[in-house]
Design a protein around this nucleic acid. Structure first.
Length: 704
RNA sequence: GGGCGAUUAGCUCAGUUGGUUAGAGCGCACGCUUCACACGCGUGAGGUCACAGGUUCGAAUCCUGUAUCGCCCACCA
């Protein structure tokens, strides 16, 4: 027996050594596997952002994906798990801007090319860091196939998709209301904003003969249209198009009466003025009636000259002053202080989103969503847990067109060119006098094509064999951002679903079930846990009892518990190896051992079924219990007298059983606890290969 | 306003298609230096499965309703 078993299991000494052995074996690459022509099994890793450290959620996802991959590999499949890294456009630029801010610099005073270069270098060093962390988690992914979302071939193919979609009329350039973040100076898609309910004063102002209500007095300078419902009996004396002279913020103006059904008669006074440049509903009314549209607030959130004496003032400061002035003029009718209002904020910096009118590229979602819905409804793609499919459907049935233009440099340039107001989509310049759009893509426009990009769409060899992929495993909070878009792009480009199954894990919260955040200081770093308790312990803690789709409260105690389990397994191995050194593996099982063996295979079948059905939480728990309560507590104890007894036949049979049981429990545990199982396996007599490529127990007795 | 969940032991959670006295981890109590393991061993306390109805021979599990909590979506100024 190896002397290493005399000491408790040492993960920190073992793990890097084992990982190196795996990596050098080449078996992460399915082309090197004995079963290289077997049935393909493919997972594409959700590429972690190359802008920081992994969080516990990554550890959970990585663990589940690794379990799936190792299980498939041991069952003789041509298992491929493709890693990647995401440039994460806006998010990375935000991270980098914070660094610049700390250094007293600003992107707005930098040459865009220099900024791009700096961020590129920043992500390259972070990418290495991130890859090392994925290795530490034991991920058996094929690093030789790793992709970065800004690899030149990815950029080229993503741009091609844009050109194709433009040609097919699925992408259009339009002047529309967009979500503008005044801090980050870019537009955002609808799902990149957070709607927060806030209590805001609701002001009623006298507007000629009317009383209008608003929460945003600072937008009201240009309001020269007063809108009411055509059926509203209270205002039937006013006719559409009628002009009225009235006193307003900065003096007398001429207002025009507009009758439009968008007005809710029940709300407020049933009359409103409109600010089409800074409100979508107002913009739609203005378009219907062909009204003037004027910008009131600039891109930095300051008032434009139309505000008169308020020009240049930040809107946050201006509001109170404007109300004060209107009050002084006797135009403030009343204020409702308890009004609840939904406000959109930038999901990264929490700045209030300013709706602005801007020319942008939009993806027409309805036709794409229809096909994705069909795939979900027909079962071509299956969601785990089931109820995520309902959430998916609800969103897909109510899609809004997707703004894919970002006014940031960190991303893939949009291959569109303009000349005299005319736009064409093309990777190369169409010729003299054309200038390229300076905007970049929403990062999800490229990551939405990730399963295609990583497998070599349209003509790579992996695309032929490994697409569509088997499973997409990711966090449920990016169902809309990512999963939905991958389905849309893939069905559009290939008529195939990108994956047959979507497994969505929940979020990992702190021990009290509260969301982890830097500001709350409750963030648990996965690598701190692996250092302290070992990767296998962390993996088990993340998997046992964690049902898909449900958020998990991460308790350090739980990880500690599975460190103890790892040590238990270590000691079981020590006992068995110590007591079977003279085992004869050719003897027949005695009846008692035959029964134990049959019992074991009931477990093995059960666990196999659980893994096939994505019930990792049950499989892991069953293995834990068999190993500790059955094998250690009962079988090992009852074996002691047999091993020390006079009956040689019984002893030899039991020795064989223990050796076989150990070998097989190591196999079953390997997807969950790859390091310690491989390490023990390396001490098994007669072992011929790495545990990671050893066959999964199938029912007949197995041995090293 | 719309959608989706959750409610089981002190805490965090399982309970896969309804089927014997409802489980785990941690915590708690008591006892153990037993020759694999104190990162351990043994024994034990602890639950009207949110509430009210219903279906069934049988319900934590299926149906209806109620309450509470949570998440997501949404252009009522």
């Amino acid at each position: 027996m190896d002397a290493k078993f005399l000491k408790p299991y040492q993960p920190s000494e073992t793990e890097p050594r084992i990982y190196k052995e795996w990596e050098e074996s080449g078996y992460f690459n399915p082309d090197n596997l004995p079963q290289k022509n077997g049935e393909p099994f493919t997972i594409v890793m959700p590429p972690p952002n190359a802008n920081g450290n992994l969080h516990v959620g990554h550890a959970l996802g990585t663990t589940v994906q690794d379990i799936l991959t190792r299980f498939a590999r041991m069952r003789g499949k041509r298992a491929l798990w493709i890693p990647g890294a995401d440039h994460a456009g806006f998010e990375t630029q935000v991270v980098y801007e914070r660094i610049l801010e700390k250094e007293g610099r600003s992107r707005f005073s930098m040459d865009p090319k220099d900024l791009y270069k700096e961020i590129f270098e920043f992500t390259q060093s972070n990418k290495k860091n991130m890859e090392d962390q994925v290795r530490k988690l034991g991920a058996s992914c094929d690093w030789s196939r790793e992709k970065f979302t800004l690899d030149p071939d990815v950029v080229e193919r993503v741009q091609k998709t844009f050109v194709k979609m433009f040609g097919d009329g699925l992408i259009y350039r339009g002047q529309r209301t967009i979500n503008w973040c005044p801090k980050h100076q870019t537009s955002l898609s609808d799902i990149e904003t957070e709607s927060v309910e806030e209590t805001t004063p609701f002001y009623y102002f006298k507007y000629g003969p009317f009383t209008i209500g608003t929460v945003r007095p600072e937008t009201k300078f240009g309001d020269k249209y007063v809108v009411m419902h055509p059926e509203d009996p209270r205002y039937k004396e006013y006719v559409h198009g009628q002009q009225l002279d009235l006193e307003w913020i900065n003096g007398p103006i001429t207002a025009t009466v507009i009758k439009d059904e968008a007005v809710d008669m029940e709300f407020g006074t049933g009359v409103m003025t409109i600010t089409p440049w800074h409100s979508q509903i107002d913009f739609e009314i203005a378009k219907r009636h062909n009204l003037d549209i004027e910008q009131i607030i600039d891109w930095r959130g300051k008032l434009l000259p139309i505000a008169g004496e308020f020009e240049g003032m930040k809107i946050t400061d201006a509001r109170a002053k404007i109300v004060e002035k209107l009050n002084a003029k006797g135009l403030l009718a009343k204020t409702d202080e308890s009004y609840k209002n939904v406000v959109k904020r930038c999901y990264k910096c929490n700045t209030m989103i300013e709706p602005q009118i801007k020319d942008q590229w939009f993806v027409k979602m309805a036709p794409l969503a229809e096909r994705a819905l069909e795939a979900a409804n027909s079962g071509r793609v299956r969601f785990i847990p089931d109820h995520e499919a309902k959430i998916f459907r609800n969103w897909m049935e109510n899609t809004l067109d997707w703004n894919i233009s970002r006014q940031i440099i960190w991303g893939i340039p949009i291959p569109a060119w303009e000349k005299d107001g005319e736009w064409v989509a093309s990777a190369q310049s169409p010729g003299e006098g054309w200038t390229q759009d300076t905007d970049t893509f929403d990062t999800w426009f490229s990551s939405g094509q990730w399963p295609l990009m990583t497998t070599g769409y349209p003509d790579g060899t992996d695309f032929a064999t490994h697409f569509p992929t088997s499973v997409m495993e990711t966090a449920h909070d990016i169902l809309f951002f990512w999963v939905a878009r991958m389905l849309c792009f893939s069905l559009y480009l290939t008529n195939e679903v990108p994956f047959h199954t979507v497994y969505l894990h929940g979020l990992v919260n702190d021990a009290n079930g509260k969301k982890m955040s830097k500001s709350k200081g409750n963030v648990i770093a996965p690598l701190d846990l692996t250092d302290k308790y070992g990767t296998d312990a962390l993996r088990m803690a993340l998997v046992v009892g964690n049902t898909p789709g449900t958020d998990l409260a991460m308790r350090e105690d739980k990880v500690k518990g599975y460190k103890h389990f790892a040590n238990k397994l270590w000691n079981i191995s020590r006992f068995i190896l110590e007591n079977t050194e003279d085992a004869d593996m050719s003897v027949e099982f005695a009846d008692a051992d035959q029964a134990l063996h049959a019992e074991f295979f009931e477990l093995a079948e059960d666990v196999t079924k659980d893994l096939e059905e994505y019930r990792f939480y049950l499989a892991a728990e069953k293995l834990y219990h068999y190993t500790w309560n059955r094998l250690a507590d009962a079988i090992l104890e009852e074996s002691k007298p047999i091993l020390n007894g006079e009956n040689l036949d019984a002893k030899q049979s039991r020795q064989k059983f223990l050796r076989v049981a150990l070998a097989d429990i190591l196999k079953l545990l390997h997807p969950f606890m790859p390091f310690i199982t491989e390490e023990i396996w390396s001490s098994m007599p007669d072992r011929s290969n790495l545990l990671m490529i050893t066959s999964w127990p199938t029912g007949t007795h197995a041995s090293p």
